[in-house]
């Protein structure tokens, strides 16, 4: 446990030198490195915070844009819905009108078709009636019936209206004219003479008269004086009857 002053003094000096050495080669470089790193970290942190603030600002702005777009979208959607509703209403109204027109047209068509059908039925009925009458009258046709019709012919010729008589007279004034008398059955001589006298008397002229037998008349007579024709037979009466019914229908 000796105490050596030289060692004591030298140790103090050595320690002071060691302090300088370590300060120079250890503490300062290491602390500087730590400080540099800390500054670098702080700089990066500041940059990161700045970037984060910018990102937050952008995010906030983006959210605002999104909110504005959302409002705009809802408004435009509401407007579109309103337009669609109005268009739908107008289209529905148009469709309603078209349906009404179509229904009316169909009703008219149905009525027309029904009327046509009814007319067709009536015509068929008339034709059948005429056919039936024709068959019936054909079966009833006989010289006796023709005699009766002959009487009626004479009455008609004698009771001919003055105006008609004038027309017949004018028609007979054409040159080369002759009178054609058709009958379903053969006329005897007496009837022919009587009819000739009556025609001469009615026309005041002696025109040549031709007598023919035409079974198609069923029964009765047809007298042709130029353009003037007198029908006094069942065939023409039936035609007249059918025509009258058809026009009445």
């Amino acid at each position: 446990m000796d105490f050596d002053w030289t060692t004591f003094i030298l140790e103090i000096i050595n320690f002071l030198i060691l302090i300088w050495i370590l300060k120079r080669f250890l503490y300062q470089p290491v602390l500087n490195a730590i400080t540099r790193r800390r500054e670098d970290i702080e700089k990066k942190l500041a940059d990161a915070q700045r970037i984060e603030a910018e990102a937050n600002e952008l995010k906030h702005r983006n959210e605002q844009y999104l909110a504005e777009w959302e409002v705009k979208k809802e408004n435009e959607q509401a407007q579109l819905n309103a337009e669609l509703a109005a268009l739908r209403e107008s289209k529905l109204a148009e469709l309603e009108v078209k349906i009404t027109e179509e229904a009316q047209r169909r009703r008219v068509l149905d009525e027309r078709r029904q009327a046509d059908f009814q007319r067709l039925i009536e015509e068929q009925g008339i034709a059948q009636g005429a056919q039936f009458s024709s068959k019936l009258l054909t079966r009833l046709a006989s010289p006796e019936l023709e005699d009766r019709l002959y009487v009626l012919l004479l009455e008609d010729l004698q009771g001919l209206h003055e105006q008609n008589r004038h027309i017949v007279t004018e028609a007979m004034s054409e040159p080369g004219l002759h009178i054609k008398v058709q009958s379903a059955f053969s006329l005897d001589e007496q009837k022919r003479n009587e009819l000739t006298r009556l025609l001469f008397k009615m026309t005041d002229r002696a025109l040549p008269i031709e007598f023919h037998i035409n079974p198609e008349l069923i029964s009765g007579f047809q007298i042709d004086i130029g353009p003037w024709i007198l029908h006094a037979n069942l065939r023409d009466e039936l035609k007249f009857f059918s025509g009258a019914l058809r026009h009445a229908g």
């Binding site: 030289t6 140790e11 080669f25 250890l26 470089p29 790193r37």
Partner: peptide, 30 residues
């Protein structure tokens, strides 16, 4: 003045620490 082995050992320690510190801190990086 007689330089004892203690002082010499101290110098050795100083040299060792100085060299080690110089070697270790010559290329400090971030």
């Amino acid at each position: 003045f007689g330089i004892t082995s203690i002082v010499v050992t101290t110098w050795g320690i100083m040299l060792l620490l100085g060299v080690l510190c110089w070697f270790a801190t010559r290329n400090l990086s971030l």
